[in-house]
Simulated scan of single mutants.
Amino acid sequence: MSRLLPSLALSDLDAVIVDLDGTMVDTLGDFEVALNGMLREMALPAITRAQIRNMVGKGSEHLIRSVLQRVRGGRAPDEALAREAWERYSRHYLAVNGQHSTVYPGVAQGLAALRAAGLRLACLTNKPGAFAGPLLASKGLARHFDLVFGGDAFERKKPDPLPLVKTCEALGFMRGRTLMVGDSSNDAQAARAAGCPVVLMSYGYNHGESIDEVDADGWLDSLADLPPALLAGT
């Protein structure tokens, strides 16, 4: 059930930063097709969607290395193998980007309501920018955002706080008045370290761990629940 801590209210916020994979769009289908296309070309065993689910969240490079290690019996890939895999994966992902993914219920309504409430929105994801922008556009979500930053936009990725710090600077608002909305401990850790309040979606990936155990200011079953919950706290 959706719940926000009483300390979080619309009057305390100027902007919202929203994660992409597992927060707005269920992209496991795209990951599954692209990764298995990569593995097939490399004559490596296939990987299941359930296995992929627990590896998503720390960027495509980390995902590819984790997949390679898994299908190779625990042997970590060297740099040459990781580069080859990245090139093959990128080609496959760009070919299917958005075709096997779905927007979670309530996302479009929630984003529209947040903008109607006067908040500026930014999408901040560990997904490469070349993947993130087209995905948002294909799902009709790009129009809600003032800014979009991929995982290659800054020197480090979430859970490092730097991407949130830089995004708040680009939005022009204080970190304490900018809400992070995500689906995993990566988002929560980055937000806490940056000094941003954070709300987590209950349906996301979170590396196979319970989201209820992650330190946050709220937990939602639908992004559409966020605007009315924030107004209730005002």
Results as ranks from 00 to 15, higher is better:
121 L>Y: 08
99 Q>L: 10
86 W>D: 08
124 L>F: 11
192 R>S: 04
193 A>M: 09
67 V>N: 06
86 W>P: 00
141 L>I: 09
25 V>E: 10
116 A>E: 12
123 C>A: 04
40 R>T: 11
190 A>C: 00
198 V>I: 06
207 H>L: 06
185 S>P: 01
138 S>G: 04
97 N>I: 14
71 V>H: 07
38 M>K: 12
165 V>N: 07
22 G>A: 07
7 S>E: 10
144 H>D: 04
71 V>N: 02
15 A>F: 05
159 P>Q: 01
178 T>R: 13
52 I>V: 15
106 G>W: 07
211 I>R: 15
119 L>N: 15
41 E>F: 03
117 A>L: 15
159 P>Y: 05
197 P>H: 04
32 E>W: 11
21 D>N: 13
46 A>P: 08
190 A>V: 03
102 T>S: 02
1 M>Q: 12
201 M>L: 05
149 F>D: 07
30 D>F: 09
16 V>K: 01
34 A>N: 03
42 M>F: 12
64 I>R: 00
210 S>P: 11
213 E>F: 03
179 L>G: 04
224 A>D: 13
163 P>I: 01
2 S>I: 08
71 V>E: 00
63 L>Q: 14
200 L>Q: 14
170 A>V: 04
229 A>E: 09
133 G>S: 11
3 R>S: 03
110 G>L: 14
96 V>F: 03
228 P>Y: 01
112 A>D: 15
59 G>H: 11
201 M>R: 11
64 I>M: 05
173 F>G: 00
143 R>N: 13
41 E>D: 08
142 A>K: 10
37 G>N: 12
82 A>T: 12
77 P>N: 11
211 I>L: 14
19 D>E: 06
138 S>W: 00
158 K>N: 03
222 S>E: 06
168 C>W: 03
163 P>E: 00
